[in-house]
Amino acid sequence: MLGSLAINIAIMEKKMRRDMDLVRDILLRIEGLKGDFNIYSMYPEYFDQYKVVKGTEEQGNLVIAHYGLLVKSGFVDGVAQTGNVHGLTWDGHNLLDKLR
């Protein structure tokens, strides 16, 4: 299941435009976390367990793709392939400060 999700995310990342409002929302949610979490549990409006809620596929995929870009860019300490979130990096905090 997660393997095919990673392939879909890679395709989405190439096709999408960055949504800085979504980036800010993801960073704010991560900043407010106490401990390790998962990007899926942070967005219950789009995900039930690891499955996208019917009717929210596009937005759910955008959340995952943007999360992956934030991890790859070094703004989030996490694992893009599994969705695990450990927190913001120093650069992530700086980016969030600029986006507030």
Rank of each mutant, 00 (worst) to 15 (best):
L5W: 08
A6P: 08
I9W: 02
I11P: 06
E13L: 09
E13H: 05
K14N: 05
K15N: 13
K15I: 12
M16G: 05
R18H: 14
D19V: 00
M20R: 10
V23F: 02
R24V: 04
I26T: 01
I26D: 00
L27N: 00
E31A: 14
K34G: 12
D36R: 07
D36F: 07
S41P: 08
M42Q: 09
M42N: 05
Y43T: 00
K51Y: 13
T56P: 06
Q59T: 08
Q59K: 14
V63R: 03
I64H: 08
A65N: 01
A65R: 05
A65Q: 02
A65F: 01
G68Q: 06
L69C: 09
L70C: 07
V71W: 00
K72E: 13
K72I: 10
S73Y: 11
S73F: 01
G74R: 09
F75D: 07
G78D: 03
T82D: 04
T82P: 05
T82S: 05
V85Y: 02
V85L: 10
V85I: 07
G87Y: 01
W90M: 14
D91N: 14
D91E: 15
G92K: 05
H93M: 09
N94T: 14
N94L: 15
L95S: 06
L95K: 03
D97Q: 09
